[in-house]
């Protein structure tokens, strides 16, 4: 029942949040000088004034602000995210086409960073002052502090140009032919560098957090008790200590869901990954309000679902969370 209540509570909260996201962003976009007619004109090498007026009229940009807002919200309430001004396609189609590529990239990078981060964190927590522990710290901080586009380009120069192991850009090679597995392997090859680049940011967060909580947990009474009763070290570390250290790490992983758009934008741009990030970037540059709002709507939805899943996962990892209320 508690879980059900949580879900209902979150749905109400989600509705209010989505509404606020749309109204706020619509207003902000409206306040900026210039509009999509200018970027359409830019893409065409300039346009006659009549055409600019016509474009503004076609897209309702000549209407007063509140009227544009009411029309837009009305459409969204009927589950219609509108039509992209810049790309001449329904926003829902544009966004949904890009979602799989971004999810593939972000989820793979997250899982890689989470697993590797926890393993490295636990390892360095056991010998906090060992050489390897310092090395892990150094490596993680380097990944975290280097700008992603720089890491990305460096990886490209190293592994696409100097040692040509991986392709430069995109998600697939359209010139190859073959069955499903040939294409799957091709996509995997394209994924390696962007996933590593993206994972390098998260890796530092997870490994540092895992290390800190593990060091703390390893010093607690119940670990000493476990050791005192003669449990093997492996069991002490992985069953007793790790399980109790995981909840901050899981919380953090949940918060990182917002990275579906934010963290991936630059990585997608460097590797021409055909995901939501590149679309978001292009529509912001183009002032394509319906597309931007569509992406924000979708990412707000993902964050809400991500937070809900995190809450549920925490109950699973650490039963105290649900019981304490």
């Amino acid at each position: 029942m508690k879980t059900f209540g949580l879900i209902v509570n979150r749905l109400v909260y989600a509705f209010v949040l989505l509404f606020a996201v749309l109204v706020l962003n619509f207003t902000l976009m409206h306040m900026a000088p210039g509009d999509v007619a200018d970027t359409i004109s830019q893409s065409m090498g300039g346009a006659d004034e009549e055409l600019l007026i016509e474009i503004r009229k076609d897209y309702g940009l000549d209407q007063p602000y509140y009227q544009q807002l009411v029309t837009y919200i009305g459409k969204v309430l009927r589950f219609d995210l509108g039509h992209s001004f810049f790309f001449n396609e329904p926003v829902s189609k544009l966004v949904l086409e890009r979602v799989p590529a971004t999810l593939l990239l972000v989820i793979t990078a997250q899982i890689l960073a989470l697993l590797l981060g926890v393993v490295l964190g636990v390892y360095s927590a056991r010998k906090p002052n060992g050489i390897l522990s310092h090395f892990v710290t150094l490596f993680a901080l380097f990944g975290y502090s280097a700008p992603v586009f720089w890491t990305g380009i460096l990886l490209l120069i190293a592994f696409s140009l100097q040692i040509p192991l991986f392709p430069v850009a995109g998600m697939r090679d359209v010139t190859i032919e073959g069955n499903f597995w040939v294409h799957a392997i091709d996509v995997m090859k394209h994924m390696v560098l962007p996933v590593l680049t993206l994972a390098s940011i998260f890796l530092a967060l997870y490994s540092r957090l895992a290390r800190a909580t593990m060091i703390e947990t390893l010093g607690t009474d119940f670990v000493r008790t476990a050791r005192a009763k003669g449990l093997p070290e492996r069991q002490v570390v992985y069953k007793h200590a790790l399980r109790n250290s995981l909840s901050p790490v899981v919380t953090l992983a949940g918060l990182q869901f917002s990275a579906v758009v934010s963290g991936a934008v630059l990585v997608e741009a460097v590797f021409s990954w055909p995901g939501l990030g590149t679309l978001a970037f292009q529509s912001i540059i183009a002032r394509d309000t319906p597309t931007i709002l569509g992406i924000l709507f979708f990412s707000a939805l993902v964050v809400i679902i991500g937070n809900l899943l995190t809450d549920l996962a925490l109950r699973f990892v650490d039963p105290r969370v649900g019981a304490s209320k």
Binding site: L156, I157, S160, L161, V168, G170, V174, A269, V270
Partner: peptide, 22 residues
């Protein structure tokens, strides 16, 4: 027979793609 036009917006990535023959 066929022309593929890949969309690569980053100039540095395009340069590498020319150089490695992609």
């Amino acid at each position: 027979d066929k022309v593929v036009m890949r969309i690569i917006t980053d100039p540095a990535a395009r340069a590498i793609a020319y150089e490695n023959g992609e």
